[in-house]
């Protein structure tokens, strides 16, 4: 199990309740893969600095979790299938920590 942080950009064509429902679905996929949610934050609708799919706004959400690499790969695979998930980025924050 490793610590990961994932940011997702969801389509702004979704209503707020649909966007939060999709965010909840992402969390349930994560739980199915045996991930432990540490922290989450739904940023709401933000203006994009450049267009994505010809739109200039989108829903943002960030998940902080512990999971296995296979769990993350499966989560990413399922998100890639979903057309309402425009972008995602998974980073391992602790990997980049180094003593000064």
């Amino acid at each position: 199990m490793r610590h990961y942080e994932m940011m997702v950009i969801l389509s702004d064509l979704l209503e707020e309740e649909d966007a939060t429902a999709l965010f909840d679905r992402i969390k349930s996929i994560l739980a199915d893969q045996g991930g432990e949610l540490v922290d989450e934050s739904f940023w709401g609708k933000r203006k994009l600095t450049h267009e994505i799919h010809k739109r200039d706004h989108a829903w943002y959400g960030v998940l902080d979790f512990r999971a296995t690499s296979e769990g993350v790969a499966e989560l990413e695979r399922q998100l890639k299938i979903n057309d309402d998930v425009w972008r995602m980025k998974t980073v391992r924050p602790e990997l980049r920590v180094h003593t000064a």
């Binding site: 950009i9 994009l48 600095t49 450049h50 972008r87 980025k89 180094h98």
Partner: peptide
């Protein structure tokens, strides 16, 4: 070391449309 991490962080932020290209 920090410049390299910084460049990586800026590129990640660009991909997520947080800062412009």
């Amino acid at each position: 070391q920090h410049q390299s991490k910084l460049a990586e962080a800026i590129k990640n932020a660009r991909e997520m449309a947080l800062i412009p290209y």
